[in-house]
């Protein structure tokens, strides 16, 4: 295992991690403020990716595509919140799980109906398609570096939003005592719609950014959704900082596990068996990580009971 390859994989892990953060941040905000478990978050990711692919196909502009993903996902999120989600806030988690599972069915089949079953492709803009040379002579795709930068920038912006703006104060107040801030004259249902649309926009952006690396297809959101759940369980539900730490941990574990574990087992097993055991364990590694964290901290790293 050369050092260069290892650094490249660490960067891949970071890139995966910041994308997971964009998903997990919305989920954890929505849970923290509204107490809602939203399985349909992966569908908003898909909506963002499809909107970006459609706009990029029509205009050829990647920037417009990204803007479209934000708008489409935020609009879909706000609509879903107004029609369905707001009836679920005072229901138990079982009802929330089922209603949002039903939304997944509607979103997935609806998208398949509109766009067909074949995957769409979203091209990386030409200026970013080549590699850049990093200090130390590492060649790394410029686009993936951009994703890392965008993700970290959004994380920073989100922390600022929560910590310093008026809406951030309302969000934090809503997390700790929603009756009180309603009594103080904050329009709580408007706040909920805004938070939901914000989470949806982040998911949609993640979908568009990842859609350019992978293909844009129906069902792309659910695997990411489940990883985002793992992230917020590790980080502690409701905590943005936990979501960031959890996302990076999961991203790095998943990427490095897949590279390192087969090699590790090959040192004491025959090669074919080592590949089998190593890759099986690697695919389970993040869940093992999660189980490990929960054994010691049942409410996650930054969770409060």
């Amino acid at each position: 295992m050369s050092m260069l390859l290892l650094i490249e994989q660490v960067l891949n892990g970071l890139q995966f991690g910041v994308m997971l953060f964009l998903m997990a941040a919305g989920l954890t905000l929505i849970f923290g403020v509204m107490g809602l478990i939203n399985l349909a978050h992966g569908s908003l990711y898909m909506v963002g990716a499809f909107a970006a692919a459609a706009v990029a196909g029509a205009t050829g502009s990647f920037v417009l595509a990204l803007i479209a993903s934000l708008i489409a996902a935020a609009a879909a999120g706000a609509l879903v919140e107004l029609v369905v989600i707001r009836r679920l806030y005072d229901r138990d988690h079982l009802d929330q799980v089922l209603a949002t599972f039903a939304l997944i069915l509607i979103f997935s089949e609806g998208t398949r109906w509109l766009f067909g079953s074949f995957p769409l492709f979203l091209d990386i803009p030409a200026a970013l398609s080549g590699p850049v040379t990093l200090p130390g002579g590492i060649q790394y795709p410029a686009y993936r570096l951009l994703i890392i930068a965008v993700g970290l920038l959004i994380a920073f912006g989100l922390f600022q939003l929560i910590a310093r703006t008026r809406i951030g104060i309302q969000i934090r107040a809503g997390e700790s005592d929603r009756e009180m801030i309603a009594a103080l004259g904050v329009d709580i249902s408007r706040l909920y719609t805004i938070v939901f649309a914000l989470g949806a926009a982040l998911a949609g952006l993640a979908g568009a950014l990842v859609g350019a690396i992978q293909s844009v297809q129906v069902g792309m959101g659910e695997p990411v959704l489940i990883l985002a759940f793992v992230v917020i369980v590790i980080g502690g539900i409701g905590s943005i900082r936990g979501a960031l730490v959890g996302a990076l941990l999961v991203g790095l574990t998943d990427t490095l596990g897949g590279v390192l574990l087969p090699g590790l087992f090959a040192t004491f097993m025959e090669p074919s068996a080592a590949t089998a055991v190593g890759s099986s364990l690697a695919s389970m590694s993040i869940y093992i990580l999660m189980a490990g964290v929960l054994l010691f901290r049942p409410t996650g790293l930054y969770g409060t009971t």
Partner: peptide, 18 residues
């Protein structure tokens, strides 16, 4: 079962995925 509520939902989901 060390956890409850939403954590339980997500953890059972994650074990299933594992």
């Amino acid at each position: 079962l060390r956890t409850s509520g939403v954590y339980f939902i997500m953890i059972t989901l994650a074990f299933g995925q594992m």
